[in-house]
Design a protein around this nucleic acid. Sequence first.
DNA 1: TTTATTAGACCGAACGGTCTGTTTATAAGG
DNA 2: CCTTATAAACAGACCGTTCGGTCTAATAAA
Lengths: 198, 198
Amino acid sequence: MSKRRYEGEQTKKHIVDKAKILFSQKGYVSTSIQDICAATGCSKGNLYYHFKSKEDLFLCLAEQNFTEWSEQWEKISSEYESITEKLYAYGDFIADIERPLHSIEREFISTVGLDSEAGQKLFAIINISFEKFKKFMSEGIAAGELKNENLFELTFIVSSFYSGLSRYSNLMDKDARKALFHKATTLLLQGIGTRNEK
Amino acid sequence: MSKRRYEGEQTKKHIVDKAKILFSQKGYVSTSIQDICAATGCSKGNLYYHFKSKEDLFLCLAEQNFTEWSEQWEKISSEYESITEKLYAYGDFIADIERPLHSIEREFISTVGLDSEAGQKLFAIINISFEKFKKFMSEGIAAGELKNENLFELTFIVSSFYSGLSRYSNLMDKDARKALFHKATTLLLQGIGTRNEK
DNA sequence: TTTATTAGACCGAACGGTCTGTTTATAAGG
DNA sequence: CCTTATAAACAGACCGTTCGGTCTAATAAA
């Protein structure tokens, strides 16, 4: 039972990985099951053996994406001392991701409906990562490195900032992206940092 | 010949207006021609009498959107003196738009292909507005109100900033959005303004 | 034999787009 | 002033294609 099971897990993972790339490239609706089958080399029947629907596949993949993001985040957080350094590292990290999935999350929600089961599931996943980011921001405030603004607003603005950047910079090559994110972080920090008041 | 012509223009405008809302709500691919027909009350034949394809309709609507945006922009620019005031007014203006179309532009391009005729047309439209924004930024630098950063990078970062914000805040009500954009502009300016150096 | 896996023919629905036919306001001719 | 020709404006049946999803049969490890 073990070798077969292992192979099954492998194909499942393979499908998730390829689908993530396709979804990020073409969007949720425009990426068809057939596209994913062609990219993975597996059959439609096989795909539907592992995932019960297209929505299910996307949610699996979103969750995996979130988990990876979360682990990276913890790693960055532990490697640097100051919030400033962490923020630069964060910028560098997301500049490094060539196909961010969060561009597609909105499309998914508006397609399946915010109130649907799938919509709520994705919303929950997004919310967890937002809360993590919020906690991170609050530490920055507590440490006196960030201005003592309304926590929700501050988190929202900063995360939107990076999301917007990564969304619109995906045509650049990686080096240009990294440089851009570095500059962006500098500009952001000089606004947020307490060193420069009013 | 005049009344009929007038009516034709009216329906065309009506289709564009409704389609703009639908596209911004549901995305380009997810909005079907039938959806637009149902929303406008016009028939499919009529729609295809006025527009030669779905792409053509979207491009018309994008161009109209750009024109309106441009006019508003000129108005704001002329009403205020300092770049700071203009930036607040700009934030207020785009917070007021409940369904920004620029969330969909990327989807359109990735659907039709960047190298396709339609993709290039939209790209040109976007570029023009980006150039306008760049010119605006350069005036801010020349006036000494904005830091003398690389003009392209600065423009890119600032416009991404507002795009990201409007993209992720469209679930809020208008007042909350305006407050958020005001706060965001403040944070942005304190990073960009020359008053607070290093 | 049993059971996890894989393949692909197949289905109804919905898609963008076409085609043919009908209505209607205007211009011309008597 | 009335008729008739014309073209703009509109309606909706229809077409080929593709979509997400199902189902049955085959395969191969245990």
